[in-house]
Design a protein around this nucleic acid. Sequence first.
DNA 1: ACCCGTGTTCGCTG
DNA 2: TCAGCGAACACGGG
Length: 278
Amino acid sequence: MPELPEVELHRRHLEKWLAGRTVVDVEVRPAGLLDGNSAQSLKKRLKNVTFEKPVRVGKHIAVPSTKGGALYLHLGMTGNFSRRKAGEPEPRFRALSLFLDDDRVVDFTDARRFGTMGWLAGDDVRAAPPFNALGRDLLDDPPGPKEFLALLSTTKRPVKIALMEQSLVAGLGNIHAAEALWRAKIHPERPANSLGVDEVKRLLTGIRQTFKLVLDDDDGESLAYVEQGAVNPFKIYDRDGEKCPRCKRATIGKFTQGGRSTYVCPVCQPLPKARKRS
DNA sequence: ACCCGTGTTCGCTG
DNA sequence: TCAGCGAACACGGG
């Protein structure tokens, strides 16, 4: 369920659960492995590893080992971390279990198996793939307005599609891209290179705000809003047919863009008529 | 039965 | 050569 803020909450949980802990045993269910890794090799690398503070860039996590190298994790669509006491039954859809020296077990579950794990060699994980292909992290290292404007001006693709391009800027997915654009009053189909500097400033603010909504919702153990039966915390995502919470006049619309559902307030986010060239 | 999906990658096209 | 775009991946849940 992860875009940047959800992954950041997971990173904080992993920091509490793993930093300073040593791996006593490992179980791996082979799926979604990083290039050059096998389930067997990963299991071998993890045995007796002592973890340091987990690092996150965009939606990617690395948990460095005190002896060099790092455990790499990407949650895909349905990845999740949880912790149990040793001896308690393993969770459904388990992809990886880390049995630790404090009689706890940290599990990575992944129902849809789009997640990825593996071992990163070397001391500077950020210099290695897949980290070296990422743009600036939108929480910890966001671009300034001028730089963001320059990045967006490199493509004529719809701004929502461009925002989800992890090599441009890292961390936005389908939900938060739609939410940030609504907050910035920018239509998702606007060509990325048509935005002005004021719009880009609003976009940076919108991204900060939509991230904050999730980051403030951490209950310390799990992602509260994702729990079954939880109320949708978002402003327009999955709210087509409802009134826009800002203008309270228009009805939120839904359409497909790049194969994914996109939501828009037709009043707050007008799409300027394309100029006919003559 | 059928459709949908908070992500990424691959292959085709112009 | 490469930006752009659609399909594919896997599988549970509504």
